[in-house]
């Protein structure tokens, strides 16, 4: 599974991570993802897909905007991988966080 065009085959689509909180005093929680061709549609899709609560605030960001800190893979992927420096992946040429998410 690649970051772009993953579910639709449309080249301009990308994954956006969705965060929300129910109350001003709450921290944001990562609640899921949507696939969209632009920010405008990512907003709409997120709001209409994750409508299980009366959110105080919701925000979306393209997955590419996140950089891995300790694991040598893009964030928000399922399954673990060794921390940077502890596995063979760390010896590869690609910097952490910018690789293709591992297949799960």
């Amino acid at each position: 599974m690649s970051t772009n065009g993953s579910r639709t085959g449309l080249a301009d689509e990308q994954i956006y991570e969705v965060f929300s909180r129910k109350d001003r005093a709450d921290r944001f929680e990562h609640i899921g993802t949507v696939t969209a061709p632009n920010r405008e549609l990512a907003r709409v899709y997120a709001w209409q897909t994750y409508d299980e609560a009366k959110w105080f605030e919701m925000t979306v960001a393209p997955r590419d905007a996140f950089t891995a800190v300790n694991l040598n893979q893009a964030p928000f992927t399922l399954g673990g991988s060794p921390p940077v420096g502890e596995g063979s992946v760390a010896d590869s040429d690609s910097p952490p966080g910018y690789g293709t998410p591992t297949e799960s």
């Binding site: 579910r7 639709t8 449309l10 689509e13 949507v34 696939t35 969209a36 549609l41 709409v44 899709y45 209409q48 897909t49």
Partner: peptide, 9 residues
């Protein structure tokens, strides 16, 4: 709809 998300919309 063209995508799952558009269908949900």
């Amino acid at each position: 709809a063209p995508t799952v998300e558009a269908g949900i919309a």
